[in-house]
Computed example of a mutant assay.
Amino acid sequence: MTPDQRARIVFMGLVALDEAAERARAARGPVETCLSDRVILATLYAIAGRGRPSFYGFWRELRRPIGPLTGDATMRGNMLHTHFCGICRALGIKQTIAFTSALADARREPMHGLRNPEPFPADEQRARFAEFLRETMNDRRDADRERRAARECGLRG
């Protein structure tokens, strides 16, 4: 899988999770989940390879029934946001204003560019997100190198 394909899958998955969270926040009772919610969570977890509690927590909060007159709806919204942030951390994505704006734009125009055979190379926002994802991965790789170098003994014989 190329980095651009990975970025596209991750972005579309996060848009779908953000939409599911918004659907759950608006619900006044139990939320109807579907197989696609599970597939999206499983795919993003397979790509991330870590942060399992956030993925399971997100699923549990989607499935948890709430009372209609209690503060459970607010608590569910807060917990979904917390788990969404954990999923983004597991994927190595920093939640910036540009990232949040790109999610909102993608949710507002769900079919924009999806019918074209090559929709994303011409799409400036998704190209910026792919570049942002590459930079984030480079930052993580550099931090890992620095940690390994700090653990090594500086004395050589």
Rank of each mutant, 00 (worst) to 15 (best):
A16T: 09
R38Q: 05
S101E: 05
L44P: 08
A42M: 11
A21M: 12
A90D: 06
N78R: 03
H112W: 08
G86M: 13
E152W: 05
E61I: 02
P53G: 12
P68S: 10
R60A: 12
T33C: 09
G77P: 01
R108T: 10
V39S: 14
R145W: 13
F99M: 03
R148M: 07
C88D: 13
G57K: 09
A150S: 09
I47S: 00
R25S: 05
E135L: 03
V39I: 05
G71R: 03
E146W: 09
L69N: 05
L17S: 11
E118F: 12
Q95W: 02
E19V: 02
L41S: 10
K94L: 13
A127F: 10
G154L: 06
A73W: 01
R151N: 12
P121L: 12
R89C: 10
G113C: 01
R6I: 03
F84C: 01
R60I: 05
I40N: 13
A127I: 10
R60P: 04
G13L: 04
F55S: 01
D4M: 11
L44R: 06
P3W: 04
Q5R: 08
A7N: 00
A46S: 12
R140H: 12
N116R: 15
A46C: 07
T74C: 00
R108H: 02
E146Q: 10
L14R: 03
D18A: 15
E135Q: 05
R134F: 01
R134M: 02
G67L: 02
E109A: 08
R23V: 07
A98K: 03
R25Q: 12
T96Y: 06
D4L: 14
G154D: 09
R107I: 05
E135Y: 01
A20D: 11
M79K: 06
P119Q: 14
P110K: 12
T33L: 11
E135M: 01
D123H: 11
P119C: 15
V31H: 10
D105K: 04
I93V: 15
A27E: 14
F84V: 00
K94R: 14
C34I: 08
E32G: 04
S54R: 00
D37R: 03
E118W: 14
N78E: 06
G154K: 07
P68T: 09
Q5K: 05
A42T: 15
G71N: 10
C153W: 02
A73D: 08
C85H: 05
E118I: 15
G13S: 07
R145V: 05
G13A: 06
L62V: 02
A143T: 09
R147W: 08
R126Y: 13
P3V: 03
A16G: 10
P117G: 07
G157N: 05
R6G: 04
H112T: 04
G157A: 13
R115F: 12
G67K: 07
D72Y: 01
L41P: 08
I66Q: 15
A73G: 08
T96C: 02
E22H: 09
R89E: 15
G67Q: 10
A26G: 00
R141A: 13
G157L: 08
P30Q: 15
P68W: 02
D139P: 00
G51R: 04
T33H: 05
K94Y: 04
R141L: 06
L155T: 15
P65V: 11
G49Y: 10
